[in-house]
């Protein structure tokens, strides 16, 4: 039995290591969505507060009817991040937008309590796809690092959803 466990453990860990390596490599080699010269704002042709490439990502990733609520929740977060990037030079606006991001994340947690982190990681990677957007995001965070942003309790998270 012990040997079975050892062999199985080694097998699982080997698969894990190889799988992790493959996934990591594929992520590292994936083409950048935007060039480094692209502006922080990017293109928002429909003026909905979300870059068009991110709009496309959200609509393609959460296209089915069962994901309609998630589509809206992710877009709410994307809009709040875009505002944070555009106003990253302003400490008071950074606090306003950080609060909007918290409400959007609470909505996301209410909609998908078991999957929210993976969804967040993926959409944030889309939003911060260039160095200057990443720097703006961190700059906005830096303005509010000593502030206390009120949190909604879990039973009220759903009220943070804008639609």
């Amino acid at each position: 039995m012990r040997r079975w466990c050892q062999e199985t453990g080694v097998l699982v860990m080997t698969i894990a290591a190889l799988g992790g390596l493959l996934v990591s490599c594929s992520a590292e080699n994936s083409p950048s969505a935007s060039s480094t010269t692209e502006s922080i704002a990017g293109t928002d042709a429909d003026a909905n507060g979300v870059r068009d490439d991110v709009d496309r990502y959200i609509d393609q990733t959460y296209a089915d009817q069962a994901s309609a609520d998630l589509n809206k929740a992710v877009r709410q977060y994307a809009k709040a991040v875009q505002s944070s990037l555009l106003d990253a030079d302003s400490p008071p606006l950074s606090l306003t937008h950080a609060t909007e991001r918290f409400r959007a994340l609470e909505c996301l947690m209410a909609r998908r309590p078991s999957e929210f982190h993976r969804i967040f990681v993926d959409v944030r990677a889309q939003l911060l796809n260039t160095a200057n957007r990443s720097e703006a995001y961190l700059k906005a965070d830096d303005h509010v690092k000593t502030q206390t942003i009120p949190l909604l309790p879990a039973d009220q998270w759903v009220t943070a959803c804008q639609s």
Binding site: A27, S30, S32, R124, A125, N129, T130, A131, R133
Partner: peptide, 10 residues
Amino acid sequence: GLTSTAVWTG
């Protein structure tokens, strides 16, 4: 030499 997207994902 990672892209921003890869860094945020991992």
